[in-house]
Design a protein around this nucleic acid. Sequence first.
DNA 1: TGAAATGTTGGGGCG
DNA 2: ACGCCCCAACATTTC
Length: 472
Amino acid sequence: MTAPTLFWFRRDLRLSDNPALTAAAKTGAPVLPVFILDPETEALGAAPRWRLGAGLRALSAGLEAVGSRLILRRGPALSVLRDLAEETGATTVHWGRLYDPTSLARDTALKTALTAAGLAAKSHAGHVLFEPWTVETGQGQFYKVYTPFWKAVRTRDLPSPLPRPRLAAPETWPRGDGLAEWGLGKDMNRGGAIVAAHANPGEDAAADRLAAFADGALDAYDADRDRLDRAGTSGLSENLSLGEISPRTCWFAGLRAMEEGKRGAETFLKEIVWRDFAHHLVYHTPHIVERNWRPEWDRFAWRGDSAAAERWRRGLTGEPVVDAAMREMYVTGRMHNRGRMLVASYLTKHLLTDWRIGLKWFEACLIDWDPASNAMGWQWSAGSGPDATPFFRIFNPATQAEKFDPMQIYRRRWVAEFSGDPGADALSYFDAEPKSWGLAPDAPYPKPLVDLKAGREAALAAYQDHRAQSAA
DNA sequence: TGAAATGTTGGGGCG
DNA sequence: ACGCCCCAACATTTC
């Protein structure tokens, strides 16, 4: 009997264009695919944990359709992989590299320990277009500003996406856990069923979504992606987050659209590169996920958690577009990108609340949660990050709503209190919210938590204080 | 990948 | 015809 090669799925739940999986298949040995619920993965927020379960279900079905399987194991990655090697006679394990500090710390230690135990550990690129150490400035530094990063990579050639490899099945399969026994949805108070109605898990679904986008919204993407009231975005973030589609596959779709003269093509390519830039930053400056990227912001008088922050979380700020976006996230596990910028600006500026409080709530709620993108996004909004918006750039939610939701379509879609006959999406928020919140669709809509003018002025005053202190 | 305050300009109404 | 004022439209500055 031929010993299998172990393939460890992580954030690359796909068979197509998966360089690590292709490398494992190319060894000629049978491939034993495994997913490990290790302590690092257990720490995911409620919504991404639930979404992981949906992704694993799809991946498992996809593997079974080609005569393979997905073995599920729980425990520290090192002991799981050592056990599997011992049970099957495997001597090699392949995986796709990740760049966030938690994954890097685990994988670095793991590689050393596996090697010491006589196992070959082989990691591969695939999660980003360009690995973080392959892009550097003329001075040999990493990039801290997006535009030069974009200019440095936009004309680079990339190999075409890889086809699905043929996976030879081992003669016998080791035992594995059942997905249901992992209870990945148990922490999601609103229940998976609410979010499932809006989610699109799996590699096939992701490919369909990209194809529909390329034929549809991509042409007007440059303008419509900012519109809260239009389906102008790709919606691929939840798939990219778990690697159900590769960024390279998206990149080539963007290139094809460029050739076809589609107006939105370049903007789409730029967004894919923003994702790479986030990974570039998290690799070179891992503190971005938990500390102000610019240390001078450690002295800023961020407010801690508060009743106001709680109203922000619950979509009860009395600022319609903010509440609409927060409720959209709670119901769908996603939020329009313009909405993310608006709610982040409101929390960090009008409410002067520490960006980490917002980040934590996003981590609990977003099915497209990604540590690199979210850290970069929150610090961009707060003004504490690399290439961030200056703190004094304070979004006026009312003006923004007029601009990007002029007919109030988005606001009415998500806030039931605006209508005597609210739609299904607005009502579904009240099915989702925990009973302890005690909300009702026919309750009066709350008064604004802060006066927009006063909130703006207070934020600017706090910023002046901060600058005066920094100068002193 | 802002907003608001302040400055400048130019057309039209009017004495 | 001319100067003056008003003010909308646009530009610049500031946070």
